[in-house]
Simulated scan of single mutants.
Amino acid sequence: MIAAILELPLWQAMRTMGMISFLAITAGVCLGIIYSMPVWSGAVKKKLYKIHSTLTIGGAAIGMLHGMISVIDTYTPFTWSEVLIPFTADYHPVLSGLGTLSGYLLLIVILTTDLRGKLGRKLWMTLHLLAYPAFIMSLVHGFFLGTDSSNPYIQWIYAVALSAVLLTTLVRATIRSLAAGKNEPPRAAVRKEGRAG
């Protein structure tokens, strides 16, 4: 049984899981950004949140499996400590460590979401923003460590993923800025109140 498992194309399976994990995390991050835009009805927000949550948790779970398979891979085997402790791997320690660190950050984001009410909005939001560095670390890990990153299609996937996160972030910032501008009192009214005080 063990011999049969070791004869499987584990490196290819590990790379495929890594790419699926990255795509799910990218989609989860983008949906999380889109979900927070103040333009959706309650029903739409509920659906967006469910899909966002499913993709993020699923992507993180597949990413963890991707790391665990590296322990039994015969091409470049990792030890459990190399998988679990960032930057300790013999094989590309920095790039491997970024993958591990990305997984830990995603776990923090996922686990603290259930504690949102107890943590308070400000702390929860600060922890939730760790999704951004987790995404960047997973992108760098996958692109520079991936054996198929010279493939133009794979390069396009990474480029589109990065563009999608940047674009949705920019759109959200613009919408929030416009909404904040509408809520500000006119400057003349502010000046009059200041003089009266």
Rank of each mutant, 00 (worst) to 15 (best):
K47V: 13
V94C: 06
H92Q: 11
H92Y: 13
H52P: 01
P86N: 02
L107N: 06
A89H: 10
T79L: 01
I34H: 00
A161N: 05
A61D: 05
V39S: 06
I154E: 10
I33C: 07
I51N: 02
I57P: 03
Y158L: 10
P86R: 00
F135M: 14
G42H: 15
I136W: 06
S96D: 00
Y104D: 02
W124A: 04
G58P: 10
L111G: 03
Y153P: 09
H52D: 15
T79D: 04
M64S: 10
S41P: 07
T79G: 13
I69K: 05
P86S: 02
S81W: 09
V39I: 07
G63A: 11
F135R: 05
I157V: 13
V83M: 08
W156H: 10
A61P: 02
V71W: 04
V44E: 09
Y153H: 07
S138N: 09
F87C: 02
P38Q: 08
S138W: 04
K122R: 15
E82A: 01
L95N: 01
W156P: 02
M64D: 09
A60I: 10
I34E: 01
I51L: 08
P133Y: 04
L105V: 03
V160L: 14
A43Q: 15
F135W: 12
P86T: 01
L95P: 03
S150Q: 15
A131C: 05
I136C: 03
T126H: 14
L127C: 08
S138I: 15
T112F: 05
I33K: 06
P86A: 01
G146C: 05
A60K: 06
L84S: 04
L84K: 00
A131D: 00
